[in-house]
Each structure stands twice: as C-alpha cells, then as structure tokens.
Amino acid sequence: MEEKELVCLAQAGDAEAFGILVQKHETKVYTLTLRMTRNPEDARDLAQESFLLAYRKLSTFRMESSFSTWICRLAANLCIDFLRKEKRRRDRFIQVGWNENLQITDQWAEPQVKVERMEQRRALEKGIEKLSEEHRRILLLREVGGLSYEEIGAVLKLAPGTVKSRLARARCSLRDILRADGNFFGTPSSNQTKRKGGSV
C-alpha cells in the first residue's frame, strides 16, 4: 500500500494504517532524535511524542511534502525545543555519550558487518560530535531528517541564505574533521562523483 493511501486511511481514523506509518518511519525519526539529543531515553520519548503529535495534527497534513519529511520536521521542532529548554546537552554528552555509542555499535556487531564499515561509522559519529552545535543540527536536519532548506529555516528560525551558507560550512567542516581523522576517507575513489540526482 502506498504512503498516500496509508495517510488517507489514517486521516480517516484508521489506527492500523497509522501504525504502519509509524513502523515505516520510526527508524528515521528515532535516528534524528537520537543524533540531536544524544540520549537514548530522550530520543525515544521525543520520537514517540513526534508520532503522537503527528496523529493529532494528521488532519492538517496536506501531503505537500512526504510524510517522512513532515514527521521529521515535527521531530526536529520537538528536539530543538527540548534542547533549548533543557540546556543540558553538553553534560548529557559527557555522561552517556560514549555509552550510547557502544550500545549502538553492539547493534551493528553482526558477523557479516565489515570492520571497515564499522570504523567508518564510528569515525562519522566522532566527526559529527566534534562539529559546533549549529553545524551539527543543520547537518542532521538535512542529511538525516531530509528537510528542505525552507523547512530547516523554519525549524531553526534562519533566513534561506543563512541556511545555504551554514549548511555548506557544516559540510566542509565535517569533511575537514574526517580527513584529519584519516579513517573515513581511507579509500577515496577519485571517480566517484555521482551525486544524488545525477553525475558530474
């Protein structure tokens, strides 16, 4: 069943259809809230609250964007509000940040998972943690949440021009961090210039 049909059914009050939507997008939403808050419990609560909010606001969803983007935007707003109010991100990172990483690593620790990929992932996590708060948030909203520039501007209360420039700086900054680490771009392929929408 297509996502639009599920959304229509859910808007008509079909809880089962909404349940399918939750299962379909829970990983993405949870990843976003986890990467934003860096705390599994807060991330779980915020992700659940995101879906509850989505259910309450479902009648206002006009399908102008994908449901995925819409729910991620709701989650991003909740995360931003949460972090703004709590102001304890740094303390939480120091206390539980690496434990969380270990836990996540365990989830990936399957026999078939290559060591190289695990190292690449760990390097990425470290690199993101080293970013400034504003660069990290904007990068996660774009790369994990899939929000458009306009949506990012609405969530972070930034002008469109600021979104473009800050996102570019965040990418370049992360790239520099990962290059300095030396593990992420270990095997660069000079001809891999495919982008998401085409090739160079």
């Binding site: 829970e26 990983t27 993405k28 939403v29 949870y30 990843t31 986890l34 990467r35 779980r44 992700a47 996540i104 989830q107 990929r117 690449q120 992932r121 990425l124 996590e125 993101i128 790369e143 994990v144």
Partner: peptide
C-alpha cells in the same frame, strides 16, 4: 549518513 541510523 545512513550509517547513523539506529533502530528504536
């Protein structure tokens, strides 16, 4: 970036 995905 998909490497960052974590299951709830």
């Amino acid at each position: 970036f998909h490497l960052l995905e974590v299951s709830p």
